[in-house]
């Protein structure tokens, strides 16, 4: 019994650390994008995102090890927790990928799209923040977590509108096609993060509906 309790505490601690690191990556990405919009890209922030993703990978391995160490009475809960972790880890992977892309992006951002771009990256960081909160709440408060999923959906809608506004503007530009193409990729990759966050929150919502009536 004592061992089981220790395992649970270890699991919660690792999970907490993993989510905190995800939040940290999101804040660093926001910082980098903010500087990028002001034409002074802070490459250290991007490196921070990459570092945070690496740390998340280590924590993910540790979490998985603790989670499956003693797979007993509730395998579906173990599986669901594992899936949540993997989905949030994909958010980290997408943020890391975006950071690496931005690191090698050779242009400055078009002035005409800066406002829409701000809306997109704000929605992105807010969505990640809400997802982390949702993942914390699902442990103790299904109702609170359920509400969060709708807030994430709202952020995705904002991001989607911003994305198509941005692409609309970009496709009308008569400029260097490479810059237009790479900027559109920048927008698409950022939207991918929000889109995946929303997919993860949909999964969480499904679990919240499933558990009390299972």
């Amino acid at each position: 019994m004592k061992l089981l309790k220790e395992k649970k505490n270890e699991l919660y601690e690792v999970n907490k650390e993993f989510l905190a690191e995800t939040l940290n990556a999101s804040a660093l990405l926001h910082e980098a994008l903010s500087s990028f919009t002001n034409d002074k890209l802070k490459k250290e922030s991007l490196k921070g995102v990459i570092q945070a993703e690496k740390k998340c990978d280590e924590l993910k391995d540790k979490f998985t090890e603790v989670l499956f160490r003693d797979k007993r009475a509730l395998p579906f809960l173990v599986e669901d927790r594992f899936k949540i972790l993997m989905m949030i880890d994909t958010v980290n992977d997408k943020m890391e990928f975006f950071s690496r892309f931005l690191e090698v992006y050779p242009f400055k951002l078009y002035k005409e799209i800066k406002d829409e771009f701000k809306i997109l990256y704000s929605a992105c960081s807010q969505a990640v923040e809400e997802l982390v909160n949702c993942a914390i709440l699902i442990e103790t408060d299904f109702d609170g977590a359920y509400k969060k999923t709708f807030e994430i959906e709202e952020k995705k809608r904002e991001a989607r509108t911003a994305k198509f506004n941005l692409l609309g503007k970009l496709y009308k530009m008569k400029d260097d096609p490479t810059k237009v193409y790479l900027t559109s990729k920048l927008v698409t990759y950022m939207y991918d993060i929000v889109s995946w966050v929303e997919e993860t929150s949909d999964f969480l919502r499904g679990l919240i509906i499933k558990y009390p009536s299972k």
């Binding site: 509730l74 809960l77 927790r81 558990y211 009390p212 299972k214």
Partner: peptide, 15 residues
């Protein structure tokens, strides 16, 4: 089940 408000409570009850 309706009174179980999170994974932790669910886990405790099932245990």
């Amino acid at each position: 089940l309706k009174t179980l408000k999170g994974f932790k409570a669910f886990e405790k009850s099932e245990n």
